[in-house]
């Protein structure tokens, strides 16, 4: 019963890089005596990024994120981070600084993005309103391919149309234009630097992910909160 699909074309990462896309990686500068300790952290959307940002705040400031309004913890360039974090722009001499990247099983991640962003019982209606038309347009599918949600305005997708749309987008070599939640992970953290050059590449499910994050950012791990629930 196996379905054989025509092979997808080989995506030209070099052409994508020339578009000027900047990976969402973050340079963390922590005072260390008279100097500053510099590290790089990067994690994709749908890879536990919100939880990791909260942990990063606790590591840097010694307390949980105290705010309940905008700007959210995910806005790492907001004033609430006291200028400790900036978007990484320089990738030369990358290996001189410790670095931390989080990956997620690609199939699990895409199905998680489906459940929270585009399906007809979505968790995030504002994102669905924005993302479903984007996916249809990139795939070249008509709005008639989508469904009408019962829980809000706009359009939603069933699993088959969602995967068909993503497949068509990859067929057209347009995956570099996908929203961060669907963008292949190798087009973000690893666009400029392969996984082998990062100090730590881990998953959110790793028991010592937070210890590793502490170790990279502070140069030491307090050994507390090492497990990540």
């Amino acid at each position: 019963d196996k379905v054989i699909l025509p092979p997808l074309p080989h995506f030209k990462v070099s052409v994508f890089k020339s578009t000027g896309f900047k990976p969402k990686a973050w340079t963390v500068k922590v005072p260390n005596g008279n100097q500053k300790r510099e590290s790089v952290v990067c994690y994709c959307a749908k890879c536990g990024s919100t939880s990791l940002d909260s942990e990063l705040y606790r590591i840097l400031f010694g307390k949980p994120w105290p705010y309940s309004d905008w700007p959210w913890v995910q806005n790492l360039d907001s004033k609430r981070w006291k200028g400790l974090i900036t978007q990484t722009t320089k990738w030369k001499n990358f290996e001189q600084s410790p670095s931390f990247a989080v990956v997620r099983d690609p199939k699990e991640r895409l199905l998680s993005a489906f459940r929270s962003k585009v399906r007809c019982q979505s968790n995030n209606l504002a994102d669905r309103k924005r993302l479903v038309p984007q996916l249809l347009k990139l795939a070249g599918l008509s709005k008639e391919s989508a469904s009408k949600p019962l829980d809000g305005p706009g359009l939603c997708l069933n699993e088959t149309i969602y995967l068909q749309a993503l497949f068509m987008i990859h067929e057209k070599e347009l995956q570099g234009r996908l929203d961060a939640h669907f963008l292949p992970q190798h087009l973000n953290c690893f666009l400029n630097v392969p996984p082998s050059k990062w100090s730590i590449v881990t998953t959110i499910g790793s028991a010592k992910a937070i210890c590793d994050l502490e170790l990279v950012v502070l140069g030491k791990s307090k050994g507390e909160s090492c497990s990540f629930a």
Binding site: D1, K2, V3, I4, L5, P7, L8, F11, V103, R104, D105, P106, K107, L110, L111, E159, T160, L163, Q164, L166, F167, H170, Q175, P184, Q185, H186, F190, P194, P195, V201, T202, T203
Partner: peptide, 25 residues
Amino acid sequence: TLSTIDEARLDAITREEYSIFGSYL
């Protein structure tokens, strides 16, 4: 559970990611 065509599409669109960092999962 995904249908066979859905599974095949998911396999195809994630193949490159697995080849690049699958060993870290």
